[in-house]
Structure formats: C-alpha cells, structure tokens
Design a protein around this nucleic acid. Structure first.
Length: 213
DNA sequence: CAGTCGATTCACT
DNA sequence: GTGAATCGACTGA
C-alpha cells in the first residue's frame, strides 16, 4: 500500500487563535480546491495578517459591513472580496470570533492541477507565476465570491479546504511590511513568507492612485 | 447620490 | 517604471 497524505483539514481550533500566531504557521500548508474539472492544490508560501477592527489596514477597521460580514463570524471560514473591478482575493478568518481578524493568502506553489490552473492563468509566463500574488492565487484556483463564507475545515467534499502540509524550517520564515498597505498600519511586519521561494510575490509599497481628471 | 479609491495585475516604454 | 483597466463598496453631504 502506498501511504496517502493526510487529507484531514486543519482543525477549527487552529484558526481560533490570534491571527499573528496563525499566519506564519499557515506557510507550507495545503490549500485544496475542488473544481468541476478536477482538484487544484497549492502549498502556501506567502500570507499577510489583518488584525481586525483595530488594524487600519484591515477591511474591518471601520466596523461590520455587508462586505466584511464573514470576518466577524467564526474562524476557519473563507472571506473572499472583489477589488479593482476585476480581481478576487481569499482570506481565512481567524479568532477570536468577533474580532474580525483574517489572513490574506497571497501566494503559493501549485502542486496538483497545474494544467487547470494554467488554463485560468493563461498569461502566466511560467508555473511559478500561476499563484504569485493574491489575485493570481484566487484566479488560478477559480475562487470568487460564490465561495465567500465557505468553511475551510468541513472535510474532503468541501469546494475549498486547508490541510496540513510541510512546514518550512523556522529559519526560512521571514516577515516584513504588508504589500500595498499604507497609512498607520503600513509599518507592521505582518507579511510572512518562505525565504527564497520562487513563488513569493515581490513587495510593493502602497501607491496612492492618481486623481481622476 | 456622486465622488473616490482599492490587501492588483498586465501591457507597454 | 508608468499608467490603464474596471466596478462595487464605502464615505460624506
């Protein structure tokens, strides 16, 4: 018999902790997506923590709204938002419930279903770019707002799940400022990535958009 | 109700 | 390195 990898999702208690503890421990974990065409899986290489209503960089900073409602709910669920008129980004809600904290899944290495991911990410120059960036990750895995609120701990039949993976050694885990976050929350080193991994997205400072004419 | 801008990506210079 | 794409959520009047 060939030994099969662990298909049991992360327990909900894993997410029901302060987001700054959870975020770095998500590196190396497996994100699985069951599409109509087949499974797609990736190993997480880059994440960012958003610390709820007290975090100026968080969507939850100005309180509960229709969009961020899921963030205020139980941990272990997917918060998917739509941005720049064309992209989706995927987060995992963390604890404690009501604090509205979450982890943005920014990048990963596609391990299963690269052929499916390539179809969705046809402009990618190499497989390393399939999920290099939060909107690319969501596109590669066919994640949109239909999956907002999905329980990531529900089990193998769920459309989207988080599973244990191969954690990087602690000296490979790096942290730094969050990409594209400006204002008061800009300096916190709440972005975490696996050092040297080619699928990690480049850092960019926040750039205010030029005013419309 | 109109104005502003975004937890981004891509094409092009 | 710079700017366009593109739309819906949020803000403030």
């Amino acid at each position: 018999m060939i030994e099969s990898p662990d298909r049991t999702p992360m327990p909900r208690e894993f997410f029901d902790r302060p987001v700054l503890e959870v975020a770095p421990e998500l590196l190396g974990c497996t994100l699985t997506r069951l599409t109509d065409d087949g499974p797609i899986e990736l190993r997480l290489t880059e994440v960012e923590a958003y610390a709820g209503e007290v975090d100026p960089g968080s969507h939850a900073y100005r309180g509960r709204t229709a969009r961020n409602d899921v963030m205020f709910g139980p941990p272990g669920h997917a918060y998917v938002y739509f941005t720049y008129g064309m992209w989706h980004c995927l987060n995992v809600v963390c604890g404690p419930e009501g604090m509205a904290s979450g982890v943005l899944l920014r990048a990963g290495e596609i391990r299963v279903g690269a052929d499916l991911a390539r179809k969705r990410r046809f402009s990618a120059r190499s497989d390393k770019e399939l999920a290099k960036g939060p909107a690319r990750l969501a596109t590669a895995l066919d994640v949109d707002r239909d999956l907002n609120g999905t329980d990531l701990c529900a089990g193998p039949t769920a459309p989207l799940s988080l599973l244990p993976g191969t954690a990087p050694s602690s000296d490979q885990v790096r942290s730094g400022p969050r990409t594209g976050v400006g204002g008061e929350g800009a300096h916190h080193p709440w972005r975490f990535w696996i050092d040297g991994d080619p699928t990690v997205s480049p850092y960019r400072a926040h750039t205010p958009r030029r005013r419309a004419t």
